[in-house]
């Protein structure tokens, strides 16, 4: 297993978001994390990605324990190995789309020219070369999400974390983004943790995990 969570618990104040959630994901696998809202699926994603530390339990990425790493080490891991796609893209509004895609590379210390060349390739793979020079405020929601996907994959990330990537899109655009996203992830061999509450989006994954009451259930095992 490439990335696994073992018995994670996490609470925010008096709210118990995770209570003993376990799951794992193999290299190149696309896993949908489903569950009712408030079930803790985003918290699980954030723990897996090393953005927040669980109160108890372990997150293991390629035999390294994330929760034992310093903030700096986890940040470095996120810069180099992980990618992210959020519901509203969360693109940096003042940068052009190309610069947004190049951003993770630049955060990782790549030179600007090199970063932008690779970013341009990704825009091409996601069929949005025409938005390269535009600012995020000037492109459609679907285009923006495709920029976000390109941004997540540009570093050659081994795991991409996607939190409701189509949540703000209509079904046609959502499907298109999902198709391009999963194709691109499979081509580059990235594993994807896909948090969604939409079954049709989850259907793009290889399997699903249901988070209920802070616990993760791997339903495929029961069947």
């Amino acid at each position: 297993m490439m990335l696994s969570a073992v018995e994670l618990t996490k609470s925010f104040g008096s709210t118990q978001a995770l209570s003993g959630a376990s799951m794992s994901i193999a290299a190149g696998e696309i896993v949908a994390v489903m569950g009712p809202s408030g079930s803790g699926k985003s918290t699980l994603l954030h723990c897996l990605a090393g953005i927040i530390r669980p109160d108890a339990g372990q997150v293991l990425y390629r035999d390294q324990e994330l929760s034992a790493m310093s903030d700096g080490q986890r940040s470095a891991l996120r810069r180099g190995e992980f990618g992210f796609v959020f519901q509203f893209g969360q693109l940096v509004p003042e940068l052009t789309c190309l610069e947004n895609v190049a951003l993770p590379l630049r955060l990782d210390g790549h030179r600007r020219k090199d970063a932008q060349r690779r970013a341009a390739e990704w825009l091409d793979r996601l069929e949005i070369t025409d938005v390269a020079g535009k600012r995020p405020g000037e492109v459609s929601g679907g285009q923006g999400q495709r920029v976000a996907v390109a941004r997540a994959l540009v570093t050659g990330a081994r795991v991409v974390f996607a939190d409701e990537p189509t949540g703000a899109l209509d079904s046609l655009n959502g499907e298109r983004v999902m198709r391009l996203f999963t194709d691109a992830a499979r081509t580059s061999g990235a594993a994807v943790v896909l948090v969604t509450h939409e079954a049709r989006v989850a259907a793009y994954a290889d399997r699903e995990i249901v988070v209920r009451d802070g616990k993760a259930l791997d339903l495929a095992r029961h069947a």
């Binding site: 049709r200 259907a203 793009y204 994954a205 699903e208 249901v210 339903l219 069947a223």
Partner: peptide
């Protein structure tokens, strides 16, 4: 609940299959 989960997994399995066929 298990019954529902089992059914749900079956539904999703089919949905994945359809999605694959669709793409």
């Amino acid at each position: 609940a298990e019954l529902l989960d089992t059914q749900r997994a079956e539904h999703l399995r089919l949905m994945r299959e359809l999605t694959r066929r669709k793409t």
